[in-house]
Simulated assay, not measured.
Amino acid sequence: MQEIFKTIENIAIKISDALKYADLGYTDHKNQTGDTQLKLDVLSDEIITAEFKDVKSVKSLISEEKTDEELLNEDGEYIVAYDPLDGSSLVDVNFAVGSIFGIYKKSLSAKNLVASVYTIYGPRLEMVVCKDSPKLYRLKRDGEFGFVRELKLQEKGKLNATGATQKGWSDTHRKLVNTLFERGYRLRYSGAMVSDLHQVLLKGGGLFSYPATSDAPKGKLRVSFEVLPFAFIYEKAGGATSDGFSNSLFDIEIKELHQTTPCFFGSVDEIETLHQIYGKKS
Rank of each mutant, 00 (worst) to 15 (best):
K6W: 11
S267F: 14
R222F: 10
P262F: 01
K220Y: 02
Y78G: 03
K56V: 02
S248Y: 03
D28M: 07
V55S: 00
S63F: 03
K105T: 02
C130F: 02
V223W: 05
Y21G: 02
K220R: 09
I4H: 04
G279Q: 08
E51A: 00
L207C: 04
G204F: 08
S44Y: 07
V227I: 14
S63Q: 04
T241C: 08
P211W: 03
T241G: 11
V97C: 15
A164N: 06
V128H: 11
F5I: 03
T165C: 06
N247Y: 07
D41M: 03
E3F: 03
P211C: 09
V223Y: 07
D92M: 04
L85R: 01
G244W: 01
G238I: 11
F264E: 05
S109F: 08
T36G: 01
D171Y: 01
M193V: 14
L85P: 13
G244D: 05
A12E: 02
I4G: 13
K131G: 12
R183S: 14
T273E: 08
K66P: 02
K281E: 10
T172Y: 00
M127P: 09
K175G: 05
G266Y: 12
F264P: 00
G76F: 00
G239F: 09
I8E: 05
D23Q: 12
Q37I: 12
G76E: 03
K281D: 06
A161W: 08
I15H: 00
V223E: 04
Y82S: 15
P134F: 02
V91L: 00
F101M: 06
A18N: 07
I13Y: 06
Q2H: 06
E235W: 01
F101L: 06
K158I: 08
A164Q: 04
I62Y: 04
H29N: 09
V268T: 15
K39Y: 14
E9M: 02
V91N: 13
R186F: 13
G191S: 08
P134G: 14
P134R: 06
G279V: 02
L139E: 04
R138S: 15
S88I: 01
L61H: 00
F208M: 11
W169N: 07
Y26S: 04
D243I: 02
A161M: 11
F181E: 06
D68V: 10
S99W: 00
K152R: 15
L85E: 06
S224V: 15
N10V: 01
D35E: 12
P134T: 13
K281C: 05
K203A: 14
K56Y: 07
D86H: 11
Y185C: 11
S242F: 00
E64S: 03
S60H: 01
K53A: 14
D83M: 00
F225D: 00
A96N: 04
V194S: 08
R138A: 15
K30R: 08
G143K: 01
S89V: 09
V117T: 12
K111Q: 15
S16H: 12
E270F: 04
Q2E: 12
G205L: 13
L113C: 09
G146V: 14
Q37T: 12
L201E: 13
S209C: 12
D83N: 05
Q259R: 05
K152E: 14
V194N: 08
D269G: 03
A18F: 06
L125R: 00
E77M: 10
L221D: 04
D132Q: 15
Q166V: 15
D28A: 10
T33P: 02
S242N: 07
A81M: 10
D35L: 09
I48E: 02
A231C: 07
E77T: 05
T27Y: 13
